[in-house]
Amino acid sequence: MDGLKDKVIVFAGAGGLAAATAGYLGAGGAKLIVGDISEAAAERTVQVAREAGGEGLAIALDISNEDQVKRQIDLAVKEYGRIDGLFNVAANIHPDEVARDTNVIDIELSAWQRTIDVNLTGYLLTLKHALPHMIAGGGGSVVNTLSGAVYAGMPDKVAYSVTKAGIGALIRHVARRYGKDGVRSNGVAPGLVLTEATKLNLPEEFRDMILTGTPSPRHGKPEDIGATVAFLLSDLSEWVNGQVLCVDGGTSMRP
């Protein structure tokens, strides 16, 4: 993909969507700094970028920990001199945590708070520390990850749904406040994408039910999301700002 050569992109999160995106960015010649709660997962994502033709570094990152977020941003600036893009894809999706996220009556406040700390406060922290460097360099692109859960009205996963909706407001705040500084702020809202985590957390019967209500003949692939994120991080999307792109096979069909 054009418009990515030598761009320095920070990743917060290193799951299946991040790895798919890393492949596109690496092929475009980008330089990645990937952080994840599992440094081994971060290294695997960086390796995808290297094998595609890019380069990068991996670092352990708990996105809810401001000191660790700052350390990742500082590493990017130290090694590459600037930051051109930020991809927030981390989420509180460990199976044990997913099981604790229920509904407004039954959810434990500790489960609610942990999801907010990771899914929403964590995104705030990466923006807080990355944006000054992007602005100093003349601008850049931010891509945050939402979910189709924002629009579906899920009967469970209340904390997950609420935090993903909050990310939408965060996207528009950054676009409106820092657009004149050359910063573009957008998001992707994936539908049901068959990552390894999805296969682990969602029974096949549930996946089949979702597909029945989807205009597309198949579920999403990580590469579907990766291509969209790569476009938003590239110069090809210079006039796209403050938007959330639903990459969901037509499930939501928002105006």
Results as ranks from 00 to 15, higher is better:
residue 211 L to Y: 07
residue 38 S to E: 10
residue 248 D to Q: 10
residue 103 N to E: 13
residue 125 L to Y: 13
residue 132 P to A: 01
residue 59 I to N: 03
residue 55 E to T: 13
residue 251 T to P: 02
residue 60 A to R: 13
residue 76 A to S: 10
residue 55 E to K: 05
residue 236 L to R: 11
residue 41 A to Y: 00
residue 134 M to E: 02
residue 195 T to M: 02
residue 123 Y to D: 08
residue 208 D to T: 14
residue 88 N to Y: 11
residue 72 Q to V: 07
residue 31 K to L: 07
residue 175 A to N: 02
residue 123 Y to W: 01
residue 68 Q to R: 11
residue 165 A to F: 00
residue 195 T to V: 02
residue 105 I to T: 14
residue 44 R to Q: 14
residue 160 Y to N: 05
residue 60 A to L: 02
residue 94 H to V: 10
residue 127 L to H: 06
residue 247 V to C: 14
residue 62 D to K: 12
residue 201 N to A: 14
residue 104 V to T: 12
residue 24 Y to D: 06
residue 34 V to I: 10
residue 6 D to T: 15
residue 76 A to H: 02
residue 50 R to N: 01
residue 155 P to C: 13
residue 246 C to N: 15
residue 232 L to P: 09
residue 160 Y to G: 06
residue 66 E to W: 05
residue 7 K to W: 12
residue 252 S to R: 15
residue 151 Y to S: 15
residue 19 A to Y: 00
residue 72 Q to E: 05
residue 31 K to S: 04
residue 243 Q to Y: 08
residue 77 V to R: 00
residue 207 R to L: 14
residue 102 T to R: 14
residue 48 V to N: 03
residue 148 G to K: 06
residue 141 S to G: 04
residue 179 G to A: 04
residue 110 S to L: 12
residue 192 L to W: 12
residue 38 S to M: 09
residue 114 R to D: 09
residue 225 I to E: 07
residue 195 T to L: 03
residue 76 A to R: 02
residue 92 N to E: 11
residue 213 G to Y: 09
residue 114 R to V: 07
residue 159 A to V: 11
residue 172 R to A: 04
residue 37 I to M: 09
residue 176 R to S: 10
residue 237 S to R: 12
residue 203 P to W: 10
residue 67 D to R: 13
residue 53 G to T: 10
residue 99 A to V: 11
residue 9 I to F: 03
residue 87 F to S: 00
residue 218 R to M: 07
